[in-house]
Structures are given as C-alpha cells and as structure tokens.
Design a binder for these strands. Structure first.
Lengths: 224, 224
DNA sequence: TTTATTTGATAGCAATACTATCACATAAAA
DNA sequence: TTTTATGTGATAGTATTGCTATCAAATAAA
C-alpha cells in the first residue's frame, strides 16, 4: 500500500494549485533543490524555469513571486512536521517522554521519504534551517499573518506549548518556550555548521548534542 | 565634554571608510533610517542615493553592495552593544547580577544617544531584530566568516558565555546558551509584536516579560 | 466534435545591481 | 603658488531580475 500524504495548503499562497498538475509538482520538487543549491537570494524563477525546462511565465502561473513560494514551502514543512509529531507521539501518555520525542524530531535531520511525496523532506529541512525565518522576517508579516500564511507554524507551536503545559501546568511561558525550542533546534544547527564558536558543538558537529542541550534547557525550566 | 565613541570596523567591510567623510556618515545615518522604513528587501542604493541627494555611484564608492552594508551595520551594533555591556557591568562582582544586567541590555529597546554618533541606535536595534539574522543566513556565511565579518557577534557571545561559566563552572553549554539568549531576546520581541501567538506576551507586549522569561530560562539551567 | 484547460514560445517593460568615465571643487603638499 | 591627490556630482550604459501580456499548440473533458 502506498499512502499519499496530502497536506491541505492555504489557497491564498498560490495562483494555481501546484499539486494539481505535473508542472506544478515539478516546480515544488525543483524549487526545493534549487533553493538548497543556490540559496534563496540567488534563486530566481528564470533559473527555476530553465532547470525544469519550462519558461518563467510558466512558473508565474503557479506562484505570484518567490516569497510566496518560500512561504508555501515553509508552511508545507510545518504541516508535515506536525503530522510527524502527532504520528510519533501517538499513544505516549507521559508528557515528558512526548516532549523529548518532539525535541528529537525538531532537531534531527529527516530522511527523505521518497514514497510519500515529490518533495525531498531532507533538503527542505536544510532550507528551513537556512531560509525559514526569511518567510516572516519581512515588512509584510502583518498582511501575511492576516492571511493565515503562518498558521501551520503557529499550530505546531501551540501543540508543543500544550505538551509543555502538560509537563508542568504552573510553568508561565509555554508558548515562548515552544517557539524557543523550534527556533533553536534550527539556529544551533546552523551555528554549529557555519559559525561554530557560537555553540558548544563545534568540535563534534553532532545533532545529538543539540538535542541534549535543548533537553537540558527545557527540563531545567520545567522541573524547578 | 562630548566623547566620541569610535568603533573599529573590519576594513574588508567597506570600499572607502564611511566614517572618514560627510557623505560616508550620511550613508550610515540614512541607510539605517531607510532600512528601518522600507525593510531590507525593498532597500536599494538608488533609493538611498535619492534620499541623501547623491547618486547611486556615490554609494558604491563606500559599499560594494547592500549585503556588505547590512553586515557593517550589524557588526557595528554588536560592537556597540559589547561596549554598553562592559560599561554597565563594570565593577559588578556577582556574576548572576552581571548576567541579569546583560539580559536587560539585550532585551531592552535602546534610546538613541544623539550625542555620541550619527547612527540612531534605537532604529538600529529595531533593524537588528527584523533583519539581523539575514546578515549570516546566506550562502556566503563561510567566506564572510573567514573574513571575520562576524567577529563582533562572536566576541559578544564569548563574553556572555564567560559570565555564564562564572555563574556555574560546571554548566555544559555556556556558548549555546549565550547565543540562545541573544537570538531569543530579539526573536521573542519580533514574535510578540508580529506573531503574538508564538509568545506568552501578546496581551501586554511588554519587554519586561521577555526579560522575565529569559531570566527564568537561564537561571533554571544554571541553578539546577 | 466542440470546448475548456494546460503549457510553450516570444515579447516587452520597469526596476535593480552594478561599472565606467569625465569634470569640478577643494584641500593638502610641494 | 602651483601641483597633486581626494571627494563628489553627473551622466551613460549593461546585464539581470521581476513581472505582465499575447498567441498558438497540445491535450483532455464535455
């Protein structure tokens, strides 16, 4: 059985639904690869079109501009990750165990699941680390937020915040701690690989150390 | 007495030293204002030139491109902040008191010190919150780092890491905790103002709450 | 078989990101 | 006082980016 994971995306993120056609799926697939290779600043629809073998105008039929495409990809990622979390923490009663599992999922490089989607989750994970914050660090955050573009991110944050509150109902900052975990799972990874002196993991460059750091951080706060 | 605070900048960041001429200082002053108003993506040398009353080519005589200018401004900010920290924690023996003071400085909106420099520190602080990470979240981090562009940031992180180690010599992640404090002082501020559901401060939007959160986070970790 | 949908191909335009050149003013050096 | 160096202004030009519009061919649905 080959099960198709379909993530319901916000309609305002695209002009034409990229999941609805071959070209659309190609745009998603190759944009992930190209952003990964070239970085978001150097990424253009022209280059993407050439890579796919279509024209610039063809891309514009699906996405208004590259910012919307980036927001689409990040939203997809957060939706996908929330599914992964609900899947992997299913049937776990102990909220601390659940939270540890969540931290693992956040900070672990994902393997590409070739069966389920045309998107390479492993590359996308790297993109989220390097480019993810650029989706909201803009002048238009307000409007984008009003259009619910960041709902998947906020939902995920709420889910984690709830697990935190389960661990310790008196803890005062569940949402801020949740967003801290999410951001730091990525930033410490980026720092470790590119600006190692900002971390304590420069020598080994092991994800497991980031996980240990985050666990220490979180459970110190919750078990005071 | 009017004391001139001069921050020694990395020579590779500029073509011609902007501190060395009136036009140069104007570039710094107005670029801070323009990036603040328009955001970094919409900021161009053309617009800056028009605002100053010079030409595009005039700006290029000082900065190779807008990325270098952003890196310059962030480097300046971190240098300035390290000075503020060493100034305001001078003569404090107790490392915990020192660390609290540091968290305050990181998370508090600075007032512009019109006397000392032509740069509006208050606007620059806002720029660092919204655009700061774009200085290093690029494909060229490696080369930029080799040229020591991020030294002021790394130095600041080292300073804070040392205070953390003074507080608790057995704590295993002083540098990662330091970079976490720095980043979160800014990100929680950005979230509070633009994506409030990612924080616990959406109702009040008070900086003091971010400070309380960071203090709780840090001293829970250090006083286990 | 008609009609709607999707794509490819081409054109074009305004803005961006630069580089190059010449001339003028001014201030320091000879 | 003349020479020389320095900083700025003005103009021009080019490649790329970001985006819109139009037309025709191919394919699939009605």
């Amino acid at each position: 059985m080959k099960l198709q994971l379909q993530i319901k995306m916000n309609e305002a993120l695209f002009v034409r639904n990229p999941e609805s056609s071959e070209l659309g799926k190609n745009i998603l697939k190759h944009s992930v690869e190209l952003i990964y290779e070239a970085g978001f600043e150097a990424f253009t629809f022209k280059k993407l079109a050439t890579k796919i073998g279509t024209t610039e105008a063809g891309i514009y039929r699906y996405f208004e501009n590259k910012h919307k495409l980036l927001v689409y990809l990040t939203a997809w990622y957060w939706g996908w990750l929330e599914f992964q979390i609900s899947f992997h923490t299913n049937n776990i009663d102990n909220p601390s165990v659940k939270l540890k599992r969540v931290i693992n999922l956040l900070a672990t490089a994902v393997e590409d699941d070739e069966e389920t989607t045309h998107i390479n989750e492993s590359l996308l994970h790297q993109i989220i680390i390097s480019e993810g914050s650029k989706a909201y660090l803009t002048k238009q955050v307000g409007e984008d937020n009003q259009q619910q573009f960041f709902k998947p991110y906020k939902d995920l944050c709420a889910v984690i915040g709830n697990i935190i509150s389960e661990c310790n109902p008196t803890y005062k900052y569940p949402k801020s701690l949740a967003s801290t975990i999410i951001e730091m799972a990525h930033f410490q990874n980026f720092f470790m690989n590119h600006l190692p002196s900002l971390t304590d993991f420069g020598d080994t460059k092991e994800e497991s150390e980031i996980i240990a750091f985050l666990n220490d951080l979180v459970f110190s706060s919750l078990n005071k």
